[in-house]
Design a protein around this nucleic acid. Sequence first.
DNA 1: CAAAATAGTGCTCTTTATTGCTCTATTTAT
DNA 2: ATAAATAGAGCAATAAAGAGCACTATTTTG
Lengths: 72, 72
Amino acid sequence: MHFEELIKIVKERRDNLQVTQEYLAQLSGVGLRTLKQFESGKGNPTLQTVQKIADVLGLEVSLKLKDVTRNQ
Amino acid sequence: MHFEELIKIVKERRDNLQVTQEYLAQLSGVGLRTLKQFESGKGNPTLQTVQKIADVLGLEVSLKLKDVTRNQ
DNA sequence: CAAAATAGTGCTCTTTATTGCTCTATTTAT
DNA sequence: ATAAATAGAGCAATAAAGAGCACTATTTTG
């Protein structure tokens, strides 16, 4: 999963939940500036930052063996 | 997936592949110090760092909806 | 057990992420 | 079309990550 995909998932999830960046920042404890940077693809957030955001959105960061079969 | 789990997965995968920290550092382009810190649970790596390491190990970072049913 | 290899840590410097503030751009609602 | 709300960006300070080096601790191997 590339960076852009991760961003897309966060943005989509946030939109679905109808939460603004501002409110998500508050809820997650991540600075608004940091969140803005992340969502606009400018950042290289730390794992902690990503996890804080993910937590609030009901998302989960995971690390798994890449599927080599490549379909499904 | 908590931080410790992510670390465990990296270490286990590296062990399985019989790659040393030193070699993984070289292959991934991540500094040896950084890798050591990460694996020993001392660090808070950036997403980029995690992805570099994951790539070499054939692992994938992903972000998905948390499963609320909680069992499998 | 001794030697060799691998992993972890203190010190330290450089780079960059995080953050707030302010302003601009874009999107949404009336 | 305007106003209001939301998102993106420049500037700047602070904190923390990335990194190398040298040393210690632990693990593995003969």
